[in-house]
Nucleic acid binder design. Structure first.
Length: 560
RNA sequence: GUGCUUUUAGCUCAGCUGGAUAGAGCGCUUGACUACGAAUCAAGAGGUCGGGGGUUCGAAUCCCUUAAGGCACACCA
């Protein structure tokens, strides 16, 4: 556990002990200790920590908060054996403000120096076995901006959860079955026959018009010739689907890898269909009386589970729906030993969330263990104008183009920096710009500056890192050290709440404090003690920056 | 129509289980290199937290209501 978290726990404990002591001595009349807060005040003038405990007790004690605070502070001082608080004051309507002893700042820096690449890591979630499924784009086309946002959020979240000790499996669900694939196959077949000279073939109604599948078909013909014309349509379609999916998937894999994302598992929907898993859940649900037939289709009584309408499980053509397959798929994930299933879906899937949870309950699996992060759309801006993105008209920007244009680092940072449930305005020009306006460069620049200082050091850095706790006198030094100490709290917060953007924000804050420090403090041309302390501070900053950037999947350059 | 979601500075967004004078970046105005990288820093202006009601010591935050955007409500996925 980090210094800061330990410290906060101790402070809270001490307040509780103090109150208990007060009860013993009948100084306080309350029977139960209320849930009080320990927060970091926005304004430094109000101390390092503040608690609202006196205000909360006001009612039960029938006294004004400031009077109670006087009693509480005496009690606190009596039980506090660690002396981690230097000064306690009453302020405003009854806040109790605590001022930390500076000793902790030195401890924080030392911890970062000792733990290096592991600094900020933790074992809070070591009991969790998490399956994180994201992107899962249809393998019938190219990856677009929405997929890219999911990729960045998912991969970052995976890194955060791993930093908290969880076992995380990143999974891509391949929709290689169902209606879409049938349409895809028909479209391929038409393009194939057209490419070989056949004319006036009706194009399927919900077919794929993209130019990319013509390329695919041409590629197939170059390699394998036209022998497929001799086989049955069914076999031909099957072969074309197999070939195209494999080509598309390779493409998707390649570009996700360039984006810094490597999946642990690629799971095919067809495995679910072929394994009998769907029949199994249908039997389970039927045995529980949740299944009925109507108009040739088989329905799930989701209304009896609190949903607004029933859902089709098996269509009247005998094919299971996506919903039915998804229930089997999620059961399969639980059966593989995961206790948490986290999915990242586009906001257009939100109707799917509640019924999936109800379905899990219906087959006696955990609905709580299934978490869905919904992601809003990405709006793309270029030259100050919104670019309309549409698959139909083919004007959408692909991950490939994005990587070419702005690069992995900027793209990943921009996608993660906003809360998923707000729309993301992606400014291509800003992401491309190599200036202070671009947060990615700003953060990386801080790292490069530190590296630059260390390169100019006359002796080996290890000679300055003597293990003694550094002492800081200037506010900016203290602020930077404290920010380093917050890192672990940020990771925990981001992980527990599943909000990766907090890490992006933190990286920017840390870089800001470093730049401020840099502009007001020299490091190299200082008298020995100060030089040593500041070197420790910037090396600790460097490790912290490296670790944050690592979590974000953004590179940490020694030079820029 | 029903459900979910968003609404905070000119723009893009933070704001924790309710806390002190609502924050940051960009943009704007004005400054700072004979000093470890000016891809930086400092200072300033800028707000009816969409509107209205309620809960309480205290509301951007919780509840009700209302307005505006987005999404969903298929035998598609």
């Amino acid at each position: 556990m980090g210094i800061i978290i330990n410290l906060e726990n101790k402070i809270k404990e001490n307040w509780k002990k103090g109150i208990a002591l007060g009860q013993e001595r009948s100084l306080l009349s309350l029977s139960k200790i209320p849930e009080f807060t320990l927060e970091v005040p926005k304004d430094k003038k109000n101390g390092d920590y503040a608690t609202n405990i006196a205000m909360l007790l006001s009612k039960a004690e029938k006294k004004n908060p400031r009077e109670i605070a006087v009693v509480l502070i005496d009690l606190y001082k009596e039980v506090d054996v660690t002396n981690n608080i230097e000064k306690i004051e009453i302020a405003g309507p009854g806040f109790i403000n605590m001022y930390l002893s500076d000793k902790y700042l030195g401890e924080i820096v030392n911890q970062a120096l000792n733990e290096k690449d592991n600094y900020g890591h933790n074992n809070l979630l070591s009991d969790e076995k998490i399956n994180l499924e994201f992107v899962s784009a249809n393998p019938t086309g190219l990856l677009h901006m929405g997929n890219a946002r999911g990729a960045a959020i998912g991969d970052t979240l995976a890194n955060i959860l791993k930093a908290l000790g969880a076992e995380v499996t990143k999974e891509f669900y391949i929709n290689d079955a169902g209606n879409q694939i049938e349409n895809f196959g028909k479209s391929l077949d038409v393009r194939f026959r057209e490419a070989l000279g056949e004319k006036d073939i009706d194009f399927p109604e919900n077919g794929y018009h993209g130019a990319d599948i013509m390329e695919t078909v041409k590629g197939y013909i170059e390699k394998n010739g036209d022998s497929l014309l001799q086989v049955s349509e069914e076999d031909r379609v099957a072969e074309l689907i197999k070939y195209s999916l494999s080509e598309k998937l390779d493409h998707i894999k390649t570009y996700l890898a360039k984006f810094g994302l490597i999946y642990d598992v690629w799971y095919r929907e067809s495995t679910i269909h072929n394994s009998g898993a769907i029949k199994e859940i249908m039997d389970t649900l039927a045995a529980k009386g949740y299944i009925y037939e109507n108009e040739g289709a088989v329905w799930l009584k989701t209304t009896s589970m609190g949903e607004e309408k029933d859902e089709v499980m098996i269509r009247n053509n005998g094919h299971p729906t996506y919903f039915a397959a998804d229930i089997a798929y999620h059961k399969n994930k639980y059966d593989r030993g995961f206790n948490k299933l986290i999915n990242i879906w586009g906001a257009d899937h939100h109707g799917h969330v509640a019924r999936m949870k109800r379905a899990m309950e219906a087959i006696d699996y955990s609905a709580e263990g299934l978490e869905v992060i919904l992601m809003q759309l990405v709006r793309l801006y270029k030259n100050g104008e919104a670019i309309r993105m549409s698959k139909r008209t083919g004007t959408y920007v692909t991950l490939e183009e994005l990587l070419d244009e702005v690069g992995k680092d900027a793209a990943r940072y921009f996608f993660v920096m906003r809360n998923p449930d707000s729309h993301l305005d992606f400014d291509m020009d800003l992401a491309k710009s190599q200036s202070a306006d671009n947060p990615v460069f700003y953060i990386q620049y801080a790292y490069a500056r530190i590296s630059s200082i260390l390169r100019q050091l006359d002796k080996n850095i290890e000679e300055f890192l003597d293990g003694k706790e550094p002492v800081f006198r200037l506010d900016i030094e203290k602020a930077l050290a404290l920010k380093i100490g917050e890192f672990e709290k940020v990771i925990i917060d981001a992980g527990v709440r599943r909000e990766p953007y907090r890490v992006a924000t933190y990286a920017l804050e840390l870089a800001t404090l470093f730049h401020q420090f840099y502009s007001s403090c020299r490091v190299l041309n200082e008298e020995n003690d100060i030089k040593k302390n500041r070197l420790k501070l910037i090396v600790a900053t460097k490790y912290t920056l490296k670790n944050v950037l690592g979590i974000l999947g953004v590179s940490a350059p020694e030079r820029m």
